[in-house]
Design a protein around this nucleic acid. Structure first.
Length: 222
DNA sequence: TGCCAGGCCGGGT
DNA sequence: ACCCGGCATGGC
């Protein structure tokens, strides 16, 4: 680590971008769909989230009004393929309550709030933790905040950049103090880490063919 | 078949 | 300030 920290963070990005190319995240048609997807993808395979979102679209309720008005039990049934459907129905409802109560159901109004204020408020919504909040802020709101997920932790830990005990804030700070404050960069970097994990880290313990292994900046850099 | 997936909450140390 | 069990479907 030491003085190589900044270089490490940037070199990893360059390697990933060079290897995989632009990812163009988040996979959604609208900012509202990003919000819904961020909650539904909690500890869940994205393919299953897509099915649930398809259900919401088919029923014509993928909107602040639609999700506010739908019966929670019916919403849960539509979310079934995404798993944890009772929990997630409640969490979507919680966020809708918040959105309508504070901003009249208008995402643009919500995102007009200053980043730090908004982040604290979103984190108070039951069912929205650090990753979900930051995903919403970055990918739906275009706010400059770096998203840390299980993949990010696993990849950094495996390559000795962090220790297992590193907190969300530790890791987020690591990225944000070593990168320019750029929304497109934050978006792309996180997307590339997910791409890397999905491609080469099939389980928590196996990581074969990882493009970071060759010439890993920790070992060669310095 | 069992383990895992783009977490989070509530209760217990 | 951590640590754990619970929540649930679909893919490999």
């Amino acid at each position: 680590m030491g003085g190589g920290e900044e270089r490490t963070i940037i070199v990893v990005y360059q390697k990933l971008l060079n290897f995989f190319g632009e990812q163009g995240w988040w996979p959604a048609d609208t900012p509202f769909e990003v919000v819904v997807g961020a909650i539904l993808t909690q500890n869940t395979a994205w393919r299953n989230v897509e099915r649930a979102i398809e259900n919401l679209k088919r029923e014509g309720i993928l909107s602040p009004e639609g999700l506010k008005d739908v019966e929670t039990s019916r919403l849960a049934e539509l979310l079934r393929p995404a798993g944890y459907y009772n929990v997630k129905a409640r969490r979507l409802k919680n966020f809708m309550d918040f959105l309508h109560r504070e901003y009249g159901g208008d995402l643009n109004r919500m995102f007009s709030e200053p980043l730090h204020t908004l982040r604290q408020k979103i984190l108070k919504v039951k069912g929205v933790g650090f990753e979900t909040a930051d995903s919403i802020l970055l990918y739906a709101g275009g706010k400059p905040i770096f998203v840390v997920d299980a993949y990010t932790k696993r990849i950094l830990a495996r390559h000795g950049v962090i220790t297992d005990g590193a907190s969300y804030q530790d890791i987020q700070d690591l990225f944000m103090r070593n990168l320019p404050r750029s929304v497109p960069l934050y978006k792309e970097y996180h997307a590339l880490l997910v791409k890397l994990a999905k491609t080469f880290c099939k389980t928590k313990f196996v990581c074969t063919g990882c493009p970071l292994e060759e010439g890993w900046p920790i070992s060669n850099g310095k």
